[in-house]
Design a protein around this nucleic acid. Sequence first.
DNA 1: AGAGAAAACGAGCGCTCGCTCGATTTTTGA
DNA 2: TCAAAAATCGAGCGAGCGCTCGTTTTCTCT
Lengths: 230, 230
Amino acid sequence: MNFAGQRQWTAAFSTEALCARILDRHRDTVRVQKPHVAVANLARIIEATLKLSNKQGFHATSLRDLAQASGLSMGGLYSYFDNKRTLLSMILGEVSTTVSEVLRAAPEGTADDPLGHLKWLIETHIRLTEAMQPWFVFAYMEAKSFPAAERRMAVDSEAATEEIFAAILRQGVASGKFAVADIELTASLIKPLLQDWYVKRAKYRKRSTSVEQYIDAVTEIVAATVLPRG
Amino acid sequence: MNFAGQRQWTAAFSTEALCARILDRHRDTVRVQKPHVAVANLARIIEATLKLSNKQGFHATSLRDLAQASGLSMGGLYSYFDNKRTLLSMILGEVSTTVSEVLRAAPEGTADDPLGHLKWLIETHIRLTEAMQPWFVFAYMEAKSFPAAERRMAVDSEAATEEIFAAILRQGVASGKFAVADIELTASLIKPLLQDWYVKRAKYRKRSTSVEQYIDAVTEIVAATVLPRG
DNA sequence: AGAGAAAACGAGCGCTCGCTCGATTTTTGA
DNA sequence: TCAAAAATCGAGCGAGCGCTCGTTTTCTCT
């Protein structure tokens, strides 16, 4: 992933691109045949869902609201999902598969450079959540009210991310480059630092904090924590 | 605040004690006259509200659920609030006044000891959220769907807490005891470290992480971040 | 051009929601 | 002791929910 060439990112994580992947995964429940029609309408539906749900919550967003905001009719919506809960897992599923795909694609040469790998992970995670901000806000905010299956999916996804961090910390400690007392607990505490960027996004926007500033600040905190003092 | 004598804390932040303060602040909307009856029933109502809302969300919790869980009737509930939204602001109001009261009561001698003050703040904040865990989970989770007035209240409360941290960082930097590049951003990032304890409480319980371990880990991260490297 | 398929439509169904209010029970005080 | 006051009750209201399905519109292909 090259952060200088941001055009690739915005294209790869556009609503259209993400909805094309959702369509692939839900071909059986989407009753509209022609892919370009299906993707276009799915994009409108999901854009409306994210917009409304992030304001008032998914549960409080009615299908009538959704129909109006997406420009489809009540019945039209039901050509794209069989019930409201399915719409929810479409979005959640896309978030969790994307995050695990992206975070596992570390560049070469990080194998014996734990600090470099750690910095790459922090930057990539924050840039990804920036590119897919409404999606991450949605997944984070609605996670508590997910039905059991989707809830487990969210918890597992979070645990997987945490384990990626824990593995790097373990490797750094083993090679003597890091000094960390409680690896699991430290790995746990990195996550909320990354999440704050999209969870409290309004605050940072108001203060005009840039992504770069935010990445630097988190990187500095993590580095100060894991590097041996002296 | 003495953490060794935890009996004082559990008494001061019991549901009954908190509901007595809520009653004071909402005497005009509670139609039941006798205080001991009003406090007892308010406690049952709010305990039920916290329990059900933290499982399924406040919006998804119906007043019929609430009536059954609290042992009152539908009509009975409405002797204690005039509408569902009022019930919400009762809880939110109690959380935000309590947190600001407690955090401002730093022990003497912290004026010229920024690191000591910082550590006290971290420990006190985490202990408070531990004592009032369901209340904080509720306030955090439901904040997004608050009506405008309550939402502003929540944002202001968060900003106030952050400013307390920022002030200490500023003082520490001024006296040369701390080295912090971006004071406001660093103060912002301390908050999510404290919040993770109650937001992801299930995770830490599963790993049997103790409050003390958690306090130590956060304290260590913050200290490593603000102290000059040397 | 026009028939058959695909897509979109939206009024209406059963249901549950927040909330009310007259009836009923419990408490109070002379 | 017993009537007035306080507290509680729960069936019932209109509104809005998720979802369906007979109908209409739009597209496709010869």
